[in-house]
Design a protein around this nucleic acid. Sequence first.
DNA 1: ATAGAAGATAACGTTAACGTAAAGGTAAGA
DNA 2: TCTTACCTTTACGTTAACGTTATCTTCTAT
Lengths: 130, 130
Amino acid sequence: MRIGELAKQARVTTRTIRYYEELGLLGSDQDKPERLEGDFRTYSETDVLRLQKITSLKRIGLSLDQIGTVLDMLVNEQTNLQARQTVLQMLQTHLVETDEKIEALQHFRAELQENIARVQHLINEQIRNI
Amino acid sequence: MRIGELAKQARVTTRTIRYYEELGLLGSDQDKPERLEGDFRTYSETDVLRLQKITSLKRIGLSLDQIGTVLDMLVNEQTNLQARQTVLQMLQTHLVETDEKIEALQHFRAELQENIARVQHLINEQIRNI
DNA sequence: ATAGAAGATAACGTTAACGTAAAGGTAAGA
DNA sequence: TCTTACCTTTACGTTAACGTTATCTTCTAT
């Protein structure tokens, strides 16, 4: 499969894929040729999976830099505990921050809804008085 | 109070404050002079509160642009229902996205922890066999 | 043989939210 | 009066994550 099809499947642009490659997140990791046909990039199913992993990690809110760290760990089965725990630490920090955000948002939403209800009430009163 | 003190209280830099002013989020909204002393910006307690509102909305993850919209609505008591509901809509969308993020993160964290537990288990076995 | 679709590289452009440096004005204390 | 701390405006710099040309190949279909 070539870059266009991969892009379609992952709902990203080809530019994005080339950019990820440039960052070392995707394809041509070390020395793989994977340019079988006439200079065209070639991708396999594992590449599709890897790209999906990247986009889902992005959706969570991780930077491409952090994603690189996480992916390295997932691929290197023999990564030491130290490294794994560092990554876990990073994710837990991110989770805590997300938790905090959600709490603040819920608080704020409640405030706003009160606000709206109040205005709506006022309007109703006004109509009744006509 | 001058810009330096406001910055300290809000834990931001003076540059940030001037930038917010430039965007119309803070101070010199319309025609207020508020340059009483020798060309120095002057701030009151309400400015402190407004800046705190801005930073807390930022922490939630809103862009400065969105924050502007929200603040306009909070200040203009007479804003119409239409506008308020638009803002509420925006915040609800943001909340849903945040909810999704948190769910994905929790899923991923669980995966990672299993991963770590497995490796740790393997290591323990290995030690036992010596 | 040629037109068109898809790819390749190279490089400049873009947005957000400030950082940073330059060059100078002001106020308060020793 | 001089230093020092704080302030002013102006303007160029920075990071992330791509977007957008531009120019050149390659492959497929007619």
